[in-house]
Design a protein around this nucleic acid. Structure first.
Lengths: 217, 217
DNA sequence: AACACAATAATATCTGATGTTTTTGAATCA
DNA sequence: TGATTCAAAAACATCAGATATTATTGTGTT
């Protein structure tokens, strides 16, 4: 009766995390263990392991003897997250552009191309594929910094990206044309190995995103 | 029979983390659940929750269907950790020095004083209180950046500090006189609100520590 | 409206059971 | 000897259920 192969644990983790990021589990809401048991078809043990992991990443708050809550959102937190993303992602981008090889370039071209296609659809009004867009945006930003040479840095960045993404998903509005241009500019500067322009444009990209998200918050 | 109040969970977490940082649980070693059950007097449920948390922080590796291992150490990882610490801690220091108030100053003076006393003992040959020294060093570095205004930044830094500390504990040797001087220089620059000097000295402090640790690795 | 207090619900922990996967160790074969 | 195979043993991931403790809720009283 007991499924193994870490199926339950891994999938529960991913689904809960996804539901938090996409707002299906509202910020601040209580995560009752019995409720989660039904919703995710997992046992209490597995759920508590998952929630502990998410708590340590900062997506869930664990209050002593009062259980688990989806981490609340706030303007200050959003600002902190965006600033940290600028700090880490720009730093990683500089390292990556400085030492990326041919494979890195190829992967980056592919990622930007796919993102660009998706952005055209979004601009044309197809708002249905938020989840796909998220994936392409993520893959592009990852491709930019992937050659930074620091697994630890990539891992920290990944968590920050997801936290930032939750705020973007909360406000629901797409920034559009402007963001597309910024993506292209970072992309071209990175390919041209123009480190300063790439890093500055990336900073602008994140800062503008922050403004946009803050305005709608 | 079942203790509650989150006593078991919290204490188990702290003890295992401490044992990893201080090398009582060797890098790469297997964390057998039955063994841990005896050693830490906790049930499998609690242990798995704890290990998941530590895995997500990077102190433990969770291998699918093969259990938990103390995260291995490597030169590359040490270098990455040190570089990230420089990036985050110097950034935080700049923010903190720029906006620290009187309480911040007072706390910093106290932290440096206590650290200095402990350093004198260490220099005099009393090598027995590594754990105390660790606490005072931590409190000093925390006091420096505590006014940075970003909880997220402080939280990321705390994990990095502990990871870096494990490497320091592994090589067992104290850098001595030189580190004491660097501490004092950062301290004085911070109090004088000389942001650039403070940040540069802190960078030197961490870089020198890295060299020292790498040499003995 | 504020308070006390019992009833209810939820949590943290532990034990023990089950099916799977990994590891071990011995026997076999090249 | 060294490599291979395969069954036994060990360890893991998951689940269900029990207990003690703590939080929440609702009701009645002042």
């Amino acid at each position: 009766m007991a499924k193994s192969r870490n199926e339950v644990g891994a999938s529960t983790y991913q689904r809960i995390k996804r539901d938090i990021i996409f707002g299906d589990l509202a910020p601040g809401s209580k995560l009752k263990l019995d409720g989660l048991r039904e919703r995710y078809q997992a046992s209490m043990s597995t759920l508590r392991e998952t929630l502990n992991r998410l708590a340590s990443e900062g997506f869930v708050d664990a209050l002593d003897q009062r259980g688990f809550f989806v981490t609340p959102v706030s303007r200050e937190d959003l600002i902190e997250i965006a600033n940290l993303r600028v700090l880490l992602e720009c730093h990683a981008l500089r390292l990556s552009v400085a030492s990326g090889d041919t494979d890195w370039e190829g992967n980056l071209v592919a990622a930007h191309h796919k993102l660009h296609l998706m952005e055209q659809k979004m601009l044309a009004g197809d708002d249905s594929k938020k989840e796909d867009w998220k994936r392409y945006d993520w893959e592009f930003h990852l491709a930019l910094i992937e050659a930074c040479g620091s697994k630890n840095l990539l891992s920290l960045h990944s968590v920050l990206y997801d936290k930032y993404l939750r705020y973007q998903m909360l406000v629901l509005t797409y920034r559009g044309e402007e963001a597309v241009k910024e993506h292209r500019k970072v992309f071209e500067a990175a390919l041209a190995r123009d480190i300063d322009t790439a890093a500055e444009t990336l900073k602008t990209h994140i800062d503008k995103g922050l403004e946009h998200t803050l305005a709608a918050f």
